[in-house]
Write a protein that binds this DNA or RNA. Structure first.
Lengths: 152, 152
DNA sequence: TTGCTCCTCACGTCACGTGAGGTGGC
DNA sequence: TTGCTCCTCACGTCACGTGAGGTGGC
């Protein structure tokens, strides 16, 4: 029977920052806002993070950069996620199927909302791309016309 | 012969802000940075804007929000555009075809670069959407399984 | 022991938000 | 004449950046 089933790779703040594409300062600021490592493990004064923190920070940054959400909005999402995580802690244990169903039913609309925001962004980007392609097309036409008259 | 060929609809700062989806404060700040209305027409102390300004501001905001460009980067793009606009002023007049060709040849890579940035963003958004859809799928599967066991 | 990364203040910066007090157009 | 929008300071805020001075892990 192995007592070493979980290797528990842990990261220092600089490693976490690099993996998530941000800085140590940002991570500390997010901690202050309650976005990350609310009860961060420490080795002395040094913060220690897990793989779960890497995933969590990456997704926060995606929501921030790709959807342009403010940190206030991220806090709201994070709080909802934490409420679910707290429930999930009891999930595997003593929860009944009816309670589990309630948890999933609450979680689904949150992800659906995020998907909706992503779709809106995609649409805007598609329109913008079409604009730019149109612009480029006319410019290239102008260019080739100038080329033709130059050859004559 | 009509002397009224251009109706010259003009906007006040609040109207421009609304059309571009921003605020008067932002417009004044952009003016200060040289992004907009460098030599803004005024009626007394009130700033006046044209349809061209509406288009210009809208595209600045698109670049800012959709691509996440800083105002510094926008200034760089705007300066390049102004250089082209200055040349375009002479375009219709005394420029030779060879000069016109040079202008288009300089303008095309700028738009190509912007399109490239848009494509990168679109790809990231697509990946994010796929992630979310995957998440949603497993959640819905869990949900329907719970429903099934509940029915038995 | 020597670097390197980490720590906590704390002030600076970017991109505006938000009044304060006043003048001008419809 | 009365609102409404505009004007110019100027301080506040959000999301960090950037040292200053110091301690701790490899």
């Amino acid at each position: 029977v192995s007592l070493l089933t979980h290797e528990e790779t842990s990261y220092r703040i600089g490693e976490l920052a690099e993996r998530a594409g941000t800085t140590a300062r940002t991570i500390r600021y997010y901690e202050q806002l309650g976005l990350l490592g609310r009860a961060a493990a420490r080795k002395g004064a040094h913060r220690l993070y897990t793989d779960a923190d890497v995933v969590r920070l990456q997704s926060l940054i995606q929501l921030r950069d790709l959807l342009g959400l403010s940190l206030d909005e991220l806090v709201a999402i994070a709080e909802a996620q934490e409420a679910r995580a707290a429930l999930r802690g009891r999930w595997a244990e003593s929860t009944t199927d009816a309670e589990r169903l309630r948890i999933v039913d609450e979680a689904i609309p949150i992800v659906e909302r995020q998907l909706e925001l992503v779709s809106q962004r995609r649409q805007k980007l598609d329109e913008f791309a079409a604009e730019l392609e149109d612009k480029l097309r006319t410019m290239r036409e102008t260019r080739s016309e100038l080329k033709r008259t130059a050859e004559r």
